[in-house]
């Protein structure tokens, strides 16, 4: 099937006083229609920047290289106005902290009208009807349209954010840590909603998270990101059962089970992305490090169909 999204050798370089910071450094992947892909990694590995790069909402002065094809159209090459029309309409984004993402001075009604009327020149009444439907699908009664953001709980605000993302019927939804700031019950509700999106709306979902549990629950495929690069990518079950990259193994080992006797963690800290380690970026923290890891970039190898990893010793871990 023709993929909906084709990301090719994507690089995001932030301008900092110490030189360019490579938040995303050569990421390549496809996303099929109605597919859910998870992107997991530690804080600061560049996963949020990846999401923002696709949407084109990186801070001014940031350099973007590579291509982002949405239905064959390169988002990275669009003009500002063309890209604005894509944002919120073809690609929508929901954020980590819903409590700060709604304008405190505007009612929910005005938020919806603003979103819809930014993309379509239709009568306010028509737009409002659509807003009501989207809200209702998230279980929020239309009587609350005139409420302000502070009058909702965190979970409700996230459902409002999702409703607002869905109101234009986008083909791709990027969810950046959508449940991290919510409690477990609400988290379960939001995850159910995200699963429904796939079934009901046939929407592709890029789920950015550090929570492997969520990936296991929702995703078809998963990409593991480390220091701006993908180190492993494959079908969710495959990656969880047969992880190849030592970093993926470390992540999976750090999950706490009821039977866990001790806490496993990966020693060391994520590298500085202004001057990342040479060759394999994971080598300073890798338990299996060899000389070749310090001198030669590992290749992106497809070990089993659809299961890629970047490790010199991938075969040995199979």
């Amino acid at each position: 099937m023709q993929p909906l999204l084709e990301v090719r050798d994507l690089r995001v370089l932030f301008r900092t006083k110490r030189g360019p910071l490579r938040a995303v450094d050569g990421v390549t992947f496809d996303l099929a229609p109605a597919e859910t892909m998870g992107v997991v990694g530690e804080t600061g590995c560049g996963k949020s920047s990846l999401g923002k790069a696709i949407l084109g909402i990186l801070p001014p002065g940031t350099r973007l290289e590579g291509s982002i094809l949405l239905d064959g159209r390169d988002l990275a090459a669009l003009s500002r106005e063309e890209l604005r029309q894509v944002r919120g309409k073809d690609v929508a984004l929901i954020f980590q902290d819903p409590t700060t993402r709604l304008d405190p001075l505007m009612t929910i009604r005005d938020h919806f009208l603003e979103t819809i009327l930014s993309h379509e020149k239709i009568a306010r009444q028509v737009a409002l009807e659509r807003a009501k439907k989207a809200l209702a699908s998230m279980g929020i009664p239309e009587s609350r349209l005139d409420n302000y953001p502070h009058e909702f709980s965190g979970g409700m605000r996230q459902r409002i954010m999702i409703a607002m993302a869905l109101v234009m019927n986008p083909r791709l939804l990027i969810a950046d840590e959508p449940t991290t700031s919510l409690d477990v019950i609400v988290e379960a509700q939001i995850l159910n909603i995200l699963e429904d999106l796939k079934r009901v709306y046939k929407m592709s979902l890029l789920l950015i998270t550090h929570n492997l549990g969520i990936v296991a629950e929702v995703c078809d495929r998963v990409a593991v990101m480390y220091a701006g690069e993908f180190v492993e990518l494959g079908p969710m079950r495959e990656v969880f059962k047969h992880p190849i990259h030592p970093y993926t193994r470390g992540l999976l080992a750090s999950i706490i089970h009821l039977e866990s006797k001790e806490l496993n963690s990966i020693d060391g800290l994520p590298p500085d992305l202004v001057s990342p380690p040479p060759a394999c970026r994971f080598h300073p923290r890798c338990a299996y490090v060899q000389d070749v890891c310090r001198t030669k970039d590992p290749e992106w190898v497809e070990y089993t169909p659809g299961h890629f990893a970047a490790c010199h010793f991938g075969r040995d871990f199979l």
């Binding site: 949407l55 909402i57 500002r80 604005r84 029309q85 894509v86 944002r87 919120g88 309409k89 929508a92 984004l93 954020f95 902290d97 700060t100 993402r101 709604l102 304008d103 405190p104 603003e114 979103t115 930014s118 993309h119 954010m161 607002m164 993302a165 234009m168």
Partner: peptide, 14 residues
């Protein structure tokens, strides 16, 4: 602010 970035993401003109 976060809500300004979110508005940006919804496609609201600058």
């Amino acid at each position: 602010a976060d809500y300004a970035e979110a508005a940006h993401a919804r496609g609201v003109p600058g």
